[in-house]
């Protein structure tokens, strides 16, 4: 009898603890369900109906019709292409630049904290503020960028109005804003690398470049994978910069998925199709998140 009491006691405490834990998390969970799960489910539900803001209501069930319509819409497919190009461009360039700066900072002794603080500033800024600042800087006639270029004899550039330039302008501003994110994560990874393999490699006869190639890159692989994936997920969802700086233009040069969905819903007023597009974007992001999750699990 005594034994059974002793054996059961921890279980009872455990069950009690679990209930208490649930009780504590309940308000937070309820809030999350309300602000995240409900809108997502509502959007997915809406995507199955012909739901426009002119004629709102779940009157006409179309099943996968909105999805088929979206995937057959050349403008939507164009927005996917533009977004994919943007993701590849910013992730590759931010990674290259971020890794270079992280490597330099990792080897810097004096003033490291100051550099770090300066580099972190853009990351702390709201994307809307970033967009507004750069829109002013890049104004064709009043912006400081063209003014400075003019001082060295370069003719003014229509940064946000030229079809061939606007996309790369958004890429540049995004790099300015987000490269610190890469730096922070990569620098943390570099700082955590063991020192001994480098010393062993130096004695083994490796040059600095060989150390980077044979030691740093392979050892940093887990950090690099996670950093790239997180950045890709965020880049796919880019909206604020485009909204503030170009409104998807000129033409459809910067018509990213998020902005195209916004336009479909609140300009085209077709909430059903916009919800279907959101569903497709959700699948893309979820697939990337699942891959990230799997990579992180494999790493740990």
């Amino acid at each position: 009898m005594t034994t059974s009491v002793v054996n059961n006691a921890p279980n009872r405490i455990h069950v009690h603890d679990r209930r208490f834990g649930w009780l504590l998390t309940m308000p937070g969970l309820a809030l999350l369900l309300l602000v995240i799960a409900f809108p997502v489910l509502w959007a997915l539900f809406t995507s199955l109906f012909e739901y426009t803001l002119i004629n709102p209501g779940f009157h006409t069930y179309v099943g996968a019709g909105n999805y088929a319509k979206a995937l057959g819409d050349p403008e939507f497919l164009h927005s996917i292409r533009v977004t994919a190009m943007f993701v590849v461009a910013v992730v590759v360039l931010e990674f290259a630049l971020g890794f270079l700066i992280a490597l330099m900072l990792n080897d810097t002794e004096r003033g490291k904290d100051l550099y770090y603080a300066i580099l972190l500033c853009p990351l702390l800024m709201n994307p809307v503020v970033v967009g507004l600042i750069w829109r002013m800087f890049l104004h064709p006639s009043l912006g400081i960028v063209n003014y400075l270029l003019g001082r060295i004899g370069i003719p003014p550039v229509n940064w946000l109005g030229d079809v061939d330039v606007a996309f790369w302008t958004i890429v540049m501003v995004d790099i300015w804003h987000q490269v610190s994110f890469m730096i922070v994560l990569l620098l943390a990874g570099l700082a955590a690398l063991p020192r001994e393999p480098y010393e062993a490699a130096r004695v083994d006869g490796a040059s600095s470049l060989q150390c980077f190639w044979h030691i740093t890159l392979p050892l940093m692989r887990p950090v690099i994978v996670v950093t790239l994936l997180i950045r890709m997920i965020f880049a796919v969802k880019t909206y604020d910069l485009v909204y503030i700086m170009t409104r998807g233009g000129p033409g459809v040069a910067t018509d990213f998925i998020s902005y195209f969905i916004y336009r479909s819903a609140f300009v085209g007023l077709d909430l059903g199709e916009a919800s279907a597009m959101s569903g497709i974007l959700l699948v893309i992001v979820l697939a990337m998140t699942a891959y990230l999750h799997r990579s992180m699990r494999a790493i740990s």
Binding site: P194, E196, P197, E199, A200, A201, R202, V203, D204, A206
Partner: peptide
């Protein structure tokens, strides 16, 4: 430079290259 001294060192924590197999560790130098 250490690479030109033609010495070999065995570290307290072994300092093996963790991402390489034993064979690759031996072959690296």
């Amino acid at each position: 430079d250490p690479s030109k001294r033609d010495l070999a060192i065995v570290f307290q924590n072994y300092a093996l290259y963790p991402h390489m197999s034993v064979r690759e560790n031996l072959a690296f130098g």
